[in-house]
Each structure stands twice: as C-alpha cells, then as structure tokens.
Simulated scan of single mutants.
Amino acid sequence: MTDGEGVLERVLRVLGCFSEDEPAITATTLAQHTGLASSTLHRLLATLVAEGLLSRGPGHTYVIGSRLWELGELSPLSLRLRETALPHMVRLYEATGENVHLAVLDGATPEASSALYVGRLTGRQSIPTLSRMGGRNPLHVTGVGKALLADRDEPWLERYFRAPLVRETVHSLTTEAALRADLARARTLGYATTREEMTLGNVSVAAALGRVDGLPPIALGLVVHLERADERRLAPMVVQAAKDLRHDLRKA
C-alpha cells in the first residue's frame, strides 16, 4: 500500500480490479491485485457491500453492486445521450436489421483514448460483435473509433499517434500514414468505414455527430457481415441518423 493513501484511493483500487474478464472476484484475488492487507481489505469490502457498491456473488466472490449501477445511470451518457439516442438507434436497426453502436471518445489523454460504448442494439440475425455496453475498443480498428478520430484536430492527432497502433487482425491499419489516409477519406465522405480490421468478416460504417455541448465526442455506427456490407445503401442512413441525433441532442 502506498504511504499516505486515503480511503478513496483504496476503494478505487478495489473497484478497478473488476473487468469484463473478471466480473466476479474473490477476496484472495482482490488482495493479490491491490496489495492491501487482509484486515484492511475485509473492512473495506464489508463497507462496500453495506453501501451497495459491491454485492456478494457465488463461490465466495464479489461483484459490482446495484448502487454503483444506479449511480452510473445518472451520468449524462445515460440520462441525456443514450435516452435521446435510443429512438434513432431503433429506427436505424429497423431499417437495416444490423448491429447499431453508439460510442463516445474517452480517455485522460489522446494516447490513452478509446471508444467507450454507451449504446448497442442487436438482433438474432445480426452478426456477433466484440462490443458491449460499457465496453471499450481501440479507435483505429472500429468504425465509431475512426469516425471519432476523423473529427479530431491536428494537435490531438499528433499526440494520439505517439502510441503504437496495435494489430487486431491481418487487415488492421497499424501505420500512421495508412490510418491518416483512411481518416482523410472519412472526412471527404462524411463517414468512416472498417473492413475486417477488428473482427474477421465484419464491416462497419459510422459517422461522428460533431460537437454537442456538455457531452464528449460521439459517433453512431453499424456493424454488418462482409457479405451484406452495401456501403452505398448503409452510409446515407448512418449519416442521416447521426445528423438527426445531433439535432435532438442540441435541443435537449
């Protein structure tokens, strides 16, 4: 434990252990991850459970509690963005039958930024994707991520390109020159695309909303199977849905 560390820092260290890969964690594992003394950790866990921030799960595990979910739903990303976006996402899904994704740009610095998914609609016929509500994906290999990148200014992009572009598939763009060329194309077209860059067989089409006061940068997109990826048909629908959503958000 770091000298002088406060209770809040300890709480954040504990909560930071939970992830999509580890949604349920034992006290023993939490002790290993946090380095907190057993007595300190157990007192902290008891308080977090009593306050509803954590709950007891099966097999002597802890899981995220309903109170933490309740507080998260008070975020503007839920109350304002997702609630306003839902009718537009439904119309886009009904028109295409494909996965609809709503994402925002999130990160303390450009180098550490990613696409945070705040809305998702899918159906039985939609192709499986790696995205989930509250999940993150890299910017350079996702449609919504590229749309967000294409909307950034040059100083921001210069910092972003300081970090390596990790390859997710054989089709991922992993050089600055290649990605910059793709972003230039996206600015010209008014929407961004990926072709099997995050998941083989998947194609995405996405558009950024532009600036909306009080919210981070936003993008709306579709993910479809390669065989159904009719860009000429899908892109206008995505662009129009993004424009309509931006209009409603600016009124909200």
Rank of each mutant, 00 (worst) to 15 (best):
D3P: 07
G6Y: 01
V11G: 01
A24V: 06
T26R: 02
T26E: 06
T29V: 15
T29D: 14
A31I: 03
A31C: 07
H33S: 09
T34N: 11
G35I: 05
G35C: 03
L36M: 11
A37Q: 12
T47K: 15
G52L: 03
G52M: 03
R56T: 06
P58N: 05
P58E: 06
H60V: 00
W69K: 12
E70F: 13
G72D: 01
P76S: 06
R80K: 07
R82Q: 07
T84Q: 11
A85W: 11
L86V: 10
G97R: 09
E98S: 05
N99R: 13
A103Y: 01
G107N: 09
A108V: 11
A112I: 01
L116T: 02
L121R: 12
T122L: 02
R124D: 08
T129R: 14
R136N: 08
N137C: 04
L139H: 02
H140Q: 04
H140Y: 04
V144Q: 04
A147T: 04
L148E: 00
A150E: 08
P155Q: 08
P155L: 05
Y160I: 06
L173D: 04
R185S: 02
T188C: 07
A192F: 09
E197L: 03
L200F: 03
L200K: 09
V203A: 08
V205N: 05
G210R: 04
V224H: 12
A229G: 01
A235K: 06
A241R: 04
A241D: 06
L249C: 03
K251R: 13
A252R: 13
